[in-house]
Design a protein around this nucleic acid. Sequence first.
DNA 1: TATTGTTATACTCTATAACTATA
DNA 2: TATAGTTATAGAGTATAACAATA
Lengths: 157, 157
Amino acid sequence: MNNFNMSAEQIADRQGVVDQSVLEISLGFRVRRAQLAILQDFQDVLGDQGIRPADFSVLSIIAGNSGLRQSDVAAILSIQRANFVALVDGLEEKGLIERRKSATDRRVYFLHMTDAGMAFLQSLMPKWREHEDKFIGRLGGYEKRDQLIEMLRCISD
Amino acid sequence: MNNFNMSAEQIADRQGVVDQSVLEISLGFRVRRAQLAILQDFQDVLGDQGIRPADFSVLSIIAGNSGLRQSDVAAILSIQRANFVALVDGLEEKGLIERRKSATDRRVYFLHMTDAGMAFLQSLMPKWREHEDKFIGRLGGYEKRDQLIEMLRCISD
DNA sequence: TATTGTTATACTCTATAACTATA
DNA sequence: TATAGTTATAGAGTATAACAATA
């Protein structure tokens, strides 16, 4: 490769000339980039299981808290009720969770894991940990991870 | 409010019973939440300027690097060429940037800021800094911001 | 009147294939 | 044959309004 075949970006990168100074110190930009990198890896590692990040988060919440109301799970995950319906539909059609009518308030559905759902979530965990560990490794260990989580919590709270 | 009116979530929150243990230490989940919080604030603070985060990032790159090729700017920002066309169209229609044909390779467009675009970007900066400063404040200062940026870079590199 | 779950809808962001004009 | 820009399209994710059933 010679200079004639190099794009402006390549020349600039080699010479350190591309000025990204504003973006490089932008929390919005860097958080977005990190989010995209993690999303990409999630899809690479867990995509063939037919599961998306939102699905995983719903299963995690229900597995740890059997019988929450549908709208409460949505609220915990900051998903709008309207958008949560199709998500719950999908997990229910796969037999991973089930809706149970409330006996005292007939508007309400309680969400429960099925045995199959619990087994499926368990089967996902090794891959999921591998996925998370990849980034913990890049950070330099669990202590760094905890520091990062704490900072991210400051941002979203 | 009494217990009878409280949702399962509210009861659980008050009693500290909602188990989010897996998600709370999930980098994917916490980064996503932070990204959504920052995006929301960007829209609140800068949305009435008719500018989205991607627009701002493009203007920042071109302002600091006049004459990069269209496809290079897309690559720098990890935006697919195909999706970048409409973005550039929008900024050009607003008169903020302009495409200039390469004299030596007629397939290529170089991207340049217009005077109006430069003035517009300048006018955005106070609001943008206010937006970023909000989160720097939550983190506890610029040093914390730098620590966070460094960690986020580990994740996306 | 207010709330839960739901439908419909729209808008953004992202991903892929294929076209055109150039090289 | 390969590349830059483009078009078309499809899939996610997100946001709002409005409805039926129920409180």
